[in-house]
Every structure is written in C-alpha cells, then in structure tokens.
Amino acid sequence: MTAGSEEIVVSHLTKHYKKLRAVDNLSFTVHSGRVTGFLGPNGAGKTTTLRMMLGLVQPTAGTATFGGVRYADLDRPIRHVGAVLEASSAHKGRSGINHLRVICSAAGLPRQAADEALARVGLTPAAKRKFKGYSLGMKQRLGIAAALLGDPRVLILDEPANGLDPEGIRWMRDLLKALAAEGRTVLVSSHLLGEMQQLADDVVIIAAGQLIRQGPVDEVLGSMTGLSQVRVRTPQPAELAAALSEQQATVAALPDGALTVTGLDAAQVGHAAFKAGVELHELTGERADLEQVFLQLTAGKAGIR
C-alpha cells in the first residue's frame, strides 16, 4: 500500500433486521495517522458497523473500503487490517502463545511473529498459561497482540478499554497514539468519553444507526458554543451582569463570588466588560467537554430500540 491509501471509507452502510434499522445509511471517513473515536450510546449500531466493515456481517446496503478495497477482497487481510472485537475470543483451554500461533499458521505468517506480538503487549511471562487463567486485562492485551500480528496499517478496536485498570488504560492510550504517530489508521469505539477526549484526534458520533457528527475533536467541541461557559470575576458583578444580559447571555453567580456566563465566548465577555467600563480580575473560557457535547448531540436518540 502506498502512503495515505489506508483511509477507511464507509459509504451508505445499512443493516436492516426484521423491524430494526440497526445501521441506517451511515457514511464517514477515517484518516490515517490519527486516532479516531467511534462514539455512540449503547445499541447505536457501533459493533454492527464494525462487523460489517470487516465482512463478518452482511450489509443490507452500502460498502466499507480500506484504501479502496473491501476487507474480504484484501490479500491476506490481517496484514492490512488488525481488529480487536471481543475480549474473550480465544479457546479457554488453549495457551496465549498457541492462540497466536494458530492465527500465524492460518495467515501464513512466520511463527516468531507470535512471540514478538506477545512481547509487544507485555504478555511473554504468561505465554504458556491457558486463556481461562487470564484476567480481563490480559485477554484485552492478547486480543491486541493478535491484531498486531500482521503489522497492519489499519487498526480497529471495539471497546478496548473495557476491563482495563487505570494503568492498562494508560498503556493502551500510549500504544494507540504511538501506532497513529507511525502513520497508521486507528479506529476505536468506546463509551468512555473522558478517555476518548484524551486519546482521539477525530470523532465519529452515531446514534440510532445514523451519523450525528464527525470531525476533529476540537472542531466538534467548538461547534457547540451553546455548551461552553466563561468564568469571570469582577468587583462590579451587578454592572457586568446587566451588560451581558443585553447580549442574550445567561449569567449565574457562583458561591465564591465569580460569575459563569453561557452563550458568549471569552473575547465577547471581555469586550462587553471593556465597553461597560467594568474591571475584570479573572476571565477564563471553559469549553464543553466531550461528555456534555455527546449527551447533547445524542439526546433523545439513545436507549432501547
């Protein structure tokens, strides 16, 4: 593959079950060299979408391509795309290293790729232990080792942080960022929004099977000015509140004497204070976080369908 050709393009992907439109005409693009968070409430269709992209579930309509090629048409696909879909997807009676060797054997990869991948996720000491003796975190690491076997340019992970302890989550974050920094395409689904805000460069947000928003995290957060607040401190709170109210901003007093302003950004608040001749001691823009934006965007679309 040539550089830049590992983009994932999802185009009009649709899956209808008998009465349910699990995924409904979904289109988005995932860029290489970046970590893209794939977000949505439970039941939004994230897992179904990922499984359709990987040829495991037959779409009702639409396509997904990796560098222009459908997964099933890739030559030795795990050399192009590595995927971690379920934490518990190994035979309980088989050792971790043998699990990887089976995959190497089927994919025509050399045997030592298994040892290398196991070392990369720090599981070498547990190589010969049976899978049923692994903790949830070790299972996740084994899944990631399996995805890395073919040194793929694209990585897809479904809820990889599930079951990881704080140290494991940090390890995962560093690993995925490092993989993206090497120019790989990384798509991660999650409902841990705080974690995503630290990890993702781009986000794709879906709800009820439909695309809600996609783009760089900063852009998505910035687009929701209605949710951003400005914290301001002044010796003349009444005058400032009056000046801001003229501009349709909502002003609330905080117990410590500061004010929070909703509806204007920091520059607008500063300008209004300047024009009103009000002295300011503090002026801080507090942007909405991903969780607020997510809840706002998916309000009324979440839940059981």
Binding site: A72, L85, S89
Partner: peptide, 18 residues
C-alpha cells in the same frame, strides 16, 4: 462448535474471509 462456544469464529473469519 468450538469456534462459536469460545467465540473464536470472529478471529477465524477475520484471518480468512473466504
């Protein structure tokens, strides 16, 4: 049946989509 019982079918068919 092992492949479904232990959920390894996913991995198997990812490695070999045919």
């Amino acid at each position: 049946t092992n492949e479904f019982f232990h959920q390894t079918a996913t991995t198997t068919f990812l490695v070999t989509p045919r």
